[in-house]
Every structure is written in structure tokens, then in C-alpha cells.
């Protein structure tokens, strides 16, 4: 009887809504999946276009160098400060545990290996994805919605070549350099942290570092930073070029550039670690 009352109290329109919810959410899933694959295909086409335009004349050397300056030089302070704090904090946090095991002398080597192999490249790439990715995404999206990209096209200049290719080259070249710079500053931060609670000479600290860190440790880390740079440049230019819906689209494009590029950095890192582990 109670069930009957409950059933009767549900209006027919609501019933219909409830019964149609399942197919509607299924439709939503389907459209999300298809949108994802469409976007993947578009990114693939964008990548192919990049490689085609990369080798095709005319080469925009001047703009590439300008972008290297903007992306590289102007990101140095941020990357430097972050790197310094990273080295300092990692050393301070690791010291008590190592002290407990009587392995305090391993501190420089442990911090150096962590920074060079993993933390330095990934954290620097994430910071660059935030700063450079959002800046490229917002700039290109703003150019798209204010018809500046169309203006380039009708003035017989190739906007893809001038705006996208130059920026992707610049991020691919500059992010590995920024990572090396960040690693060096991090080790300096670590050296200072070691001296906060003890006394270690500069020579002894770096003797311990290079005793354990081999040249072979640097190669996989350096190679993956090239891919990080390429991914950040590619995603942010792609998002900028495909911005829609006015100023709202500019914000969305900047945000989406950062989120997607950061996610890609982690995915590339995961793949790189798997590949590296096959050889070491």
C-alpha cells in the first residue's frame, strides 16, 4: 500500500525524466568520447603540420630568437627561485631520516640524484607549463578572437609558421636549458641547506655529488626535457589557435593549455621512466 502511494505521488513527467536519464547520460558519455577522439585527431594533424612547416621556407629566424628570449630569459628568475627552494627544502626534509640511519654523508648525492633525474625536470616543466603555457595560450587565443591571426592570413603571411612553429621551437630549445639551470641552482640550495645545520665545504659537497652522479644519469633526464618542451609548446599553441567564443574563450584556452600541458608532462615522464628502466 505504501509503495502504491509512493508510486502514485510521482508525477508522470518526472517518471519520464527519470526513465530518460539513463540514455541521456549514455549520450553524454558517447559525445564526450567522440569529442576526445576528435581532439586527439586535431592535435595529431596540428603536429604533422608543425613538422611540415618546420622544414618549409621561409624560416622565421628573427621571431624564433625573440621567442627564445621571451620564453627562456624571462622565465629564468621564476625557475631559479623555485629550483633554489626545491634543493633547500629537499635537503632539510631528508636530513633527519638519513641522520637516523647514520647516512648523513649520503645527503648531497641523494639530493643530487633526485633533482637531476626526476624532481628538477618535472617541477621545472610544470612551472614552465604554468607560466609559458598560459602565456602562449592566452596570447594566441586573444589574437584569434580579435582577428589578428586572420589579418596575418590575408596579408599573405603564414600565421602558423610565424606564431606556432616559432613558439614550439623556442619551448623545445629553452626548457632543457631552463631545467639545467634549475638543477644547478637546486644543488646550490642544497649546499646552503647542508651548511645551515652543519659545515660542509663547497668542494666536499660537490665531490659527494659527482661521486654518485654519472654522466649517464643526465642523458635520459635531458632527453625527456626536450619532449616536455615540445609538448608544452605544441599544446599551448594548439589551444590558442583553436580558441572560440570571444574573451571567455581566451581564459578557457589559457586554462586548458596549462592543465593539458601539465598532464602531458607527467605522462611523458611516466613513459620516459619506463623506457629508462629497460636500460638501467
Amino acid at each position: 500500500m505504501e509503495n502504491m502511494i509512493k508510486q502514485a505521488s510521482v508525477p508522470p513527467s518526472v517518471k519520464k525524466e527519470v526513465s530518460s536519464q539513463a540514455p541521456r547520460s549514455w549520450d553524454r558519455v558517447q559525445s564526450s568520447v567522440s569529442a576526445f577522439f576528435v581532439e586527439m585527431a586535431q592535435i595529431f594533424r596540428f603536429t604533422v603540420k608543425f613538422f611540415k612547416e618546420l622544414v618549409r621556407r621561409p624560416y622565421e629566424f628573427g621571431e624564433t630568437i625573440r621567442q627564445c628570449y621571451i620564453i627562456g630569459y624571462r622565465t629564468l628568475p621564476l625557475v631559479g627561485i623555485t629550483g633554489f627552494i626545491m634543493g633547500l627544502v629537499l635537503t632539510i626534509q631528508s636530513r633527519p631520516t638519513l641522520k637516523e640511519f647514520g647516512a648523513e654523508s649520503w645527503l648531497p648525492a641523494m639530493v643530487a640524484i633526485s633533482i637531476i633525474r626526476e624532481i628538477g625536470p618535472v617541477i621545472t616543466a610544470i612551472i614552465c607549463a604554468g607560466k609559458i603555457g598560459s602565456s602562449i595560450g592566452a596570447e594566441l587565443a586573444s589574437m584569434k578572437v580579435t582577428e589578428q591571426i586572420d589579418a596575418m592570413r590575408v596579408s599573405a603571411r603564414k600565421p602558423f609558421k610565424y606564431l606556432a612553429v616559432t613558439r614550439i621551437i623556442a619551448t623545445t630549445l629553452m626548457i632543457p636549458i631552463l631545467v639545467i639551470f634549475s638543477d644547478i641552482i637546486s644543488l646550490m640550495g642544497s649546499f646552503i641547506a647542508c651548511n645551515l645545520q652543519g659545515e660542509v665545504s663547497f668542494t666536499l659537497f660537490f665531490y659527494h655529488v659527482f661521486e654518485k652522479v654519472n654522466f649517464i644519469d643526465l642523458i635520459p633526464a635531458f632527453i625527456k626535457t626536450i619532449f616536455f618542451g615540445f609538448a608544452i609548446g605544441l599544446i599551448s599553441t594548439y589551444k590558442g589557435f583553436n580558441a572560440e567564443k570571444g574573451t571567455e574563450g581566451v581564459g578557457r584556452s589559457a586554462n586548458s593549455s596549462v592543465v593539458t600541458a601539465s598532464l602531458l608532462v607527467f605522462i611523458i615522464d611516466m613513459i620516459a621512466v619506463q623506457i629508462t628502466s629497460l636500460f638501467y
Binding site: P58, M143, Q148, D150, M152
Partner: peptide, 25 residues
């Protein structure tokens, strides 16, 4: 030549660079 509704001047360039741009290609 195309004059856009919002002029579509390149924000990151000076007026001189804006005018030089179509000539470069």
C-alpha cells in the same frame, strides 16, 4: 587588402612593426 571590423592590429607590435609586417613576406 582587408580592413577588419576591429582593425586587428597586432597588439604586441608597435605601429611601425604593424605596418612593416605585411611587407616582410
Amino acid at each position: 587588402g582587408f580592413l577588419f571590423q576591429g582593425s586587428a592590429l597586432y597588439d604586441s607590435m608597435t605601429i611601425r612593426e604593424n605596418l612593416e609586417f605585411p611587407l616582410m613576406g
